[in-house]
Every structure is written in C-alpha cells, then in structure tokens.
C-alpha cells in the first residue's frame, strides 16, 4: 500500500520522485483548453450576451425546467439501473468462465460503436406496439416507445458500457490475496464481497455511474426516435436546444446549453470529489 496522498502540505503539487509532471500536465491543459474549453467559452460568451436576468428567465422558464427534469430524471433512473447490472456483468465476465463469454465481453462495447441514430431506430422498432418486445408488453397495457420509459430504455443501452468498462479493469486488478485473507479470517463470501471487494471497486463504480449519467443527459440521437417529444412530458433538453436553434434563437439555445452544462458539471464534480475522498479513505489497491 503506497500512498503519496497521505503527506500534508499546501503546495500545488506534492513532492514525488516520478518525472514528467510538468510535461504531462502542460500538454493536458493546452489540449484541453484548445479542444474543449475555448469552444465551450463560445457558449458562455453567447449566453452572456443575454445578461443575468435574460439567462435566468430562459433557464427557469417552465418549459426549460420541465425538459431539464425529463433529461436528468430519466438519466438518473437509467444510470441507477445500469450500476447493479453493469457491476454484475463485469463480475460475471471477469470471474466466471462459460461458453460464449468472450463474445458477450466483446458485445458490451456495441452501444459505443452503433451510431446513436441507428440505436434509436432499432430500439424504437423493438419497443413500438408492433415490435418484438413492444408487442409482448402491449397486451399488458405497458407502453414503452413514445413515453419517458422509452427514454430510459434508450439511455440504459447508451450507458451500460460505461459502467462495465470502468469497473472491469479494476476488478481484474483486484488482488486475490486480500480476499483469501478475509476468508482465512472467517469472513463468509458475502462479507468478503461487501467489505473487501466492493470498497476497492467503489471509485470505479462511481466513475462508471457518473459517466453513464453524464452521457445520458446529453444524449440526442437515440432518444428523439423513441421519446415522443411531447412538450412537458417527453421533451428532452437537447431537443429544446435544437428547437431554439430552429427559431434562429442562438441566445436561447446557448442558455439552455449553459444550464445543462452547469448542472452536469456540478454533478460530475461532486462525484469526482466523492471518488477522490473514497480513494484516500480506502487507499490504493494493488
């Protein structure tokens, strides 16, 4: 257990024998600024032209708030469903051996590769009342396509690989020794999983959750096909941005975009802070 993080001090960087900090960080910051921050500054700039009151009028407009609620609500539900299932999938894929495992392992990445529009079309075809799954659910009175439930389905599809692929490498890295030690000390399997394995996985699980959530909030291509897009019911925030652009209302569009940016940035930051905290709390693995 090495932990440089334990040393105190108020300098920007804590001392380390490892070289390349300046180069790595310098390059990272430059690239980040050019590709991400500078263009995003454009959004802020356009929004700023509205002034504070103008921005808040749009951000707190009933329609905007309801679209943001739909986007964040469905994303939260989808990410919350993806965490247990994603961890389970990662666990089964790393720990168990069964026929077809490699194929399943490869297929987890599919949502990354499939263009989101295709995913949307395929999912809508499946879940529409005349689709393979929608047809089974329709007699039970369950409607999926063109309801918020449909949005959740699309977002589960989009988010799953984020959880699995973030958790999986760490799970593979986990040392068997600590599990064996726990078992030797009399812990049953459930206790070992809960007390030894899960804490080690926690940072990765949180990252996976955050990424699945963050990705889901902005998702557009796959959702518009299955959502129904009814204002105040199944209208997502990115669609509202498109609508504002269509009205040649750039300031309105960037204001909604900025509102989304602020909320998701705050969420991501919170989760990254929790993660940093949990890493200090549980230390590094390996």
């Amino acid at each position: 257990m090495t932990s440089i993080g334990l040393a105190g001090g108020w300098r920007i960087k804590q001392p380390s024998v490892i070289p390349g900090f300046g180069l790595a960080l310098g390059f990272t910051l430059t690239y980040l600024s050019l590709i991400i921050l500078l263009p995003l500054a454009g959004v802020v700039w356009r929004t700023a032209s509205l002034g504070w009151s103008g921005f808040w009028a749009i951000a707190l407009d009933e329609r905007t708030v309801s679209a943001l609620k739909t986007s964040f609500g469905t994303s939260l539900v989808a990410a919350a469903i993806n965490v247990p299932f994603g961890v389970l999938v990662a666990w089964v894929l790393t720990r168990y051996r069964f026929p077809g495992r490699r194929i399943l392992d490869a297929i987890v990445d599919l949502p990354f590769a499939l263009p989101t529009a295709v995913a949307g079309i395929a999912l809508t075809a499946l879940y529409a009342p005349n689709g393979w799954i929608g047809g089974l659910l329709a007699p039970l009175g369950i409607k999926v396509a063109y309801t918020p439930l449909g949005i959740v389905i699309a977002l589960i599809f989009i988010g799953l690989p984020f959880v699995v692929r973030t958790v999986q490498p760490v799970m593979e890295e986990l040392s068997r020794e600590s599990e064996e030690a726990a078992a030797t000390l009399g812990a049953n399997r459930w206790q070992t999983v809960r007390r030894v394995i899960l804490p080690g996985l926690m940072p990765a699980i949180l990252t996976g959750f955050a990424l699945a959530l963050a990705r889901a909030v902005g998702e557009y291509g796959s959702v518009i096909f299955i959502a129904g897009n009814i204002p105040y019911v199944s209208e997502i925030a990115p669609l509202l941005i498109v609508i504002r652009l269509q009205e040649f209302n750039y300031a309105g569009a960037t204001a909604v975009a900025a509102a989304m940016l602020i909320v998701s940035f705050a969420m991501l930051l919170a989760i990254n802070l929790i993660q940093a905290w949990s890493r200090r709390r549980y230390g590094y693995g390996g």
Binding site: Y146, I224, G228, N229, I230, P231
Partner: peptide, 11 residues
C-alpha cells in the same frame, strides 16, 4: 390527440 411529435416529416 398527438401522441408523438417527430422532428421531421419523414420521421
């Protein structure tokens, strides 16, 4: 009475 508002005529 409109259950779905697609973004385009083709949709």
């Amino acid at each position: 009475n409109v259950p779905v508002l697609d973004t385009g005529a083709r949709g």
